[in-house]
Design a protein around this nucleic acid. Structure first.
Length: 600
RNA sequence: GGCCCGGUGGCUCAGCUGGUUAGAGCGCCGCCCUGUCACGGCGGAGGUCGCGGGUUCGAUCCCCGCCCGGGUCGCCA
């Protein structure tokens, strides 16, 4: 039997002219020019090749084949009389002697046109994902994903890390996101859970003496989707290292990520080591965000002192009852501003939608006068404002006011929105990384009004046991305790949190006691880890950057579904496979599950 | 769960202040075309305008409810 192909559709060149070849692929298009001349575009994974039909018989053969059927073509390579420089194989064509249909497309019209599938309705794309992925534009993101994952593996292994897989069926974790549960057939009434992250397993691997672990790890969380968050499942480059500090983790990531971003990304520039380190509180104060976009040169300044009580209602420091409103006022100065009034209104409306709070503004005109927006209230304190913000003619000032957190958030949205919209304030064509570090260990819960863990209880408090004891004795404010915890941020997108872990059971218990929990809570919530740490654990630290997010940044796509081979829709359904689906009564019985008809 | 936007031939979309027979491009079918490559030309088929109710002489259009999709907030240790 003849082999199915001698070459791919992407490789024949002028030097191959005269060769007998066999190609196989999808019939992408058939251009009929006359009764005895037509051109077939044959497409496979590697590219496209033109097949020319020059006889009535060959015309009839191709006319009978539905587009998108798979065919095998045997023939001779020939130099084209009119070449196509836009096509890699554009110098040649294949004159067929034999054409065979391998897999017939029986559908006269497709749900969408393959080469324009990105414009089609997303439900149709996901339902016919195997057709959507035939589009080279769609396929290229999945190829990129594969290459990036391969490069990450290679780099991690080169740095002495070992990939170890961890269980998919495990125990439900009491904290964090909603779990996906799997009924246990052999244990009526009990459930496995899919891991939200391999967090506890990787810490147990450290305790077991594996020095440097990593894994391209699937993670499962039953939370709602976003444009940049896939529902249900996603992948992390999960890593952990023993006898390691925060600096050790930083230097590995600073070594591994920039070359991969520069090589595979749409921009060829990426931050070099060391990345800028910004303490959490400084980030909130200076950028109004714990995920600043360092490609933007704008920053936030505090103007509470000069602008409060200027008569503008939202800036008032006291309410009508004389109570302190705890208002702070933040300013973002944009130099060289030439935008129109319409541009200002539209941009600030965007800010209001995103921040949920109204921003204010004024400008400094060419004479140095304060004009526009809230200028009426600012002009009386002009000298103080000009001096506080070093204002010059041509400056635009965006203002936010409110309680600290809200004012910072609005100012942060002003920075990102104005930075992107006003020319000259964003050096866009690069990957700008930074570390956000020194996160607070505790915060006052918005609902409870009491002290709670700020992020997660696994992080080592800065200063260890001694610091916690001081807080317990009331010598320091527990809110001032920071954790050895960090986020890695790229272009304003949080790729991951990480931390130096708390490997000391005594410190762990003390950390829990400060939030009115204790040893029993630690033991019941994290039994394996607590026990393991009582047998001698190494200090360890790690991080887990999201793979899907990284590929999204590299590809420049706005939707995470574009970088996932078979994504679910926003409602966590796989339309193509029909998941989730009903199951048989026999399956339910075997799992000891009662059906509960959902009453709508 | 809240808010915003959308749902019109297979696909993408237009459709005015509510008014005859709901249009265009792509795709599909037929005919023509000897070098196309987003081939071109001529002709044709194809629509419960998401579903239900209301207002009206008359609803794709206005109102109410619901369904579906996307975005966003909540949520995501």
């Amino acid at each position: 039997m003849m082999q199915s192909r001698t070459h791919t559709c992407g490789e024949l060149r002028i030097g191959d002219a005269g060769k007998q070849v066999t190609l196989a692929g999808w019939l992408e298009n058939f251009r009929e020019v006359s009764a005895t001349l037509g051109f077939v575009v044959l497409r496979d994974f590697y590219g496209t090749t033109q097949i020319v039909a020059e006889t009535e018989e060959m015309m009839a053969t191709f006319k009978d084949i539905t587009k998108e059927s798979t065919i095998q073509v045997t023939g001779t390579v020939r130099e084209r009389s009119s070449k196509n420089p836009k096509q890699a194989t554009g110098d040649i064509e294949v004159v067929p002697t034999e054409v065979k249909v391998l897999g017939k497309n029986i559908h006269a019209s497709l749900p969408f046109e393959i080469n324009h599938s990105k414009e089609a309705d997303e439900t149709a794309r996901l339902q016919y994902r195997y057709l959507d992925l035939r589009n080279p534009e769609v396929k290229k993101n999945i190829i990129l994903r594969s290459q990036v994952i391969a490069a990450l593996r290679e780099a991690m292994i080169a740095h002495g890390f070992m990939e170890i897989t961890t269980p998919i069926l495990t125990a439900s974790s009491p904290e964090g996101a909603r779990d996906y549960l799997v009924p246990a057939r052999k244990h009526p009434g009990k459930f496995y859970a899919l891991p939200q992250a391999p967090q506890q397993f990787k810490q147990l691997l450290m305790t077991a003496g594996f020095d440097r672990y990593f894994q391209i790890a699937p993670c499962f969380r039953d939370e709602d989707a976003r444009g940049d968050r896939s529902p249900g499942e996603f992948y992390q480059l999960d890593m952990e290292m023993a006898f390691a500090s925060q600096e050790d983790v930083f230097s590995i990531m600073e070594d591994v990520l920039p070359p991969i971003f520069a090589k595979y990304g749409k921009y060829d520039r990426a931050s070099g080591a060391p990345f800028k380190r910004i303490p959490y509180l400084e980030a909130m104060e200076k950028y109004g965000s714990d995920k600043p976009d360092l490609r933007i040169d704008l920053t936030v300044q505090d103007v509470t002192g000069v602008l409060k009580d200027t008569g503008f209602g939202p800036f008032a420091s006291m309410d009508e009852n004389g109570e302190d409103r705890k208002v702070v006022i933040k300013a973002v100065v944009v130099s060289g501003f030439e935008g129109s009034r319409k541009f200002i209104d539209k941009t600030l409306a965007d800010v209001e939608v995103q921040a949920g709070d109204k921003p204010y503004w004024f400008r400094v005109d060419e004479n140095g006068d304060i004009v526009g927006g809230i200028s009426k209230f600012v002009t009386p304190v002009k000298d103080a404002v000009v001096s506080a913000l070093s204002l010059k003619p041509g400056d635009f000032v965006g203002i936010s006011a409110g309680k600290l957190r809200a004012a910072q958030k609005t100012a942060g949205v002003l920075v990102k929105t104005l930075g992107a919209a006003v020319p000259g304030h964003m050096d866009k064509e690069q990957y700008a990384f930074c570390w956000i570090c020194d996160f607070p260990m505790y915060e006052i819960g918005e609902e409870s009004g009491e002290l709670e863990f700020c992020h997660n209880p696994f992080s080592m408090p800065n200063g260890g046991l001694e610091t916690l004891l001081k807080a317990e004795r009331g010598e320091i404010d527990p809110l001032s305790i920071t954790a050895d915890q960090y986020d890695i941020v790229c272009n304003g997108i949080e790729l991951s949190s990480g931390a130096v872990r708390n490997h000391d059971p005594e410190i762990m218990v003390k950390a829990f006691e400060l939030v009115r929990l204790g040893e029993e809570d630690v033991k019941s919530r994290f039994p394996a880890m607590y026990n393991a740490f009582t047998y001698g654990a190494p200090p360890h630290a790690g991080i887990a950057p999201g793979v899907d997010r990284m590929v999204m940044l590299l590809s420049g796509e706005d939707s995470i579904r574009e970088v996932i081979p078979f994504p679910m829709n926003k409602n966590a359904q796989d339309i193509m496979m029909g998941a989730p689906s009903e199951v048989t009564q026999a399956q339910l019985d075997e799992l000891h599950l009662k059906t509960t008809a959902v009453e709508e």
